[in-house]
Amino acid sequence: MREMTVKEVETSLKEGKKLNIIDVREVDEVTAGKIPGAVNIPLRLVEFRIHELDKSKEYVMVCRSGGRSGRAKQFLESYGFKVINMAGGMLAWEGEVE
């Protein structure tokens, strides 16, 4: 499974790299804070919102600890998307939140 650490994601953002981050936590979890610029698509809705994604882009999947984002990654890869899982999830995130 292709992964990035929390630090790699944070460093990439600080360097100004454009990351397409999808937070698959539930809406009530995201209200506590999400990575700036991340799009919230709860895991249970990913299959219904797949048409919103672009196969030419690479996506970084985020959740609370890495489990749900790993499932979302596998699902999207099965449809031909390029996806990376952020290992450790928001529990390990020490960067800025919005």
Rank of each mutant, 00 (worst) to 15 (best):
M1N: 11
M1S: 14
R2G: 01
R2S: 12
E3N: 12
E3I: 14
E3L: 11
M4F: 14
T5D: 06
T5P: 08
V6I: 12
V6A: 13
V6K: 02
V6D: 02
K7P: 00
K7Y: 11
E8F: 12
V9M: 06
E10G: 04
E10V: 01
E10H: 13
E10C: 01
T11L: 13
T11M: 11
S12F: 07
S12G: 12
L13I: 15
K14N: 14
K14M: 13
G16E: 07
G16A: 06
K18Q: 09
L19C: 04
L19E: 11
N20L: 04
N20W: 06
I21R: 01
I22D: 05
I22F: 08
D23S: 09
V27T: 14
D28K: 12
D28S: 13
D28C: 01
E29P: 08
V30K: 05
A32K: 15
A32M: 13
G33F: 12
G33E: 12
K34Y: 06
K34R: 15
I35V: 12
I35R: 03
P36A: 04
P36V: 12
G37P: 07
A38M: 08
V39D: 00
N40D: 09
N40P: 11
N40H: 12
I41C: 09
P42T: 13
P42K: 12
L45I: 00
L45Q: 15
E47K: 15
F48A: 14
R49E: 15
I50D: 02
I50M: 15
H51P: 00
H51N: 13
H51G: 08
E52N: 09
E52K: 13
L53D: 05
L53N: 03
K55V: 06
K55F: 05
S56N: 14
S56K: 14
E58N: 03
E58Y: 00
E58D: 06
Y59E: 03
V62T: 05
V62F: 03
V62G: 01
R64T: 09
S65W: 03
G66A: 08
G66T: 08
R68F: 02
S69F: 11
S69I: 09
G70A: 10
G70W: 02
R71F: 00
R71A: 11
R71Q: 14
R71E: 11
A72M: 01
A72R: 07
A72P: 02
K73R: 10
K73G: 00
Q74S: 11
Q74R: 10
F75Q: 04
L76W: 05
S78Y: 02
S78R: 12
S78E: 13
Y79N: 01
Y79L: 11
Y79T: 03
G80P: 07
G80H: 09
G80Y: 08
F81Y: 15
F81R: 03
F81H: 04
V83S: 05
V83N: 02
I84D: 03
I84C: 00
N85E: 00
M86F: 05
A87W: 00
G88D: 07
G88R: 03
G89Y: 06
G89S: 09
M90A: 02
L91K: 14
L91I: 13
L91P: 00
A92C: 04
W93L: 05
W93S: 07
E94R: 15
G95W: 10
E96V: 13
E96T: 13
V97P: 00
V97R: 15
V97N: 10
E98R: 07
E98P: 01
E98Q: 13
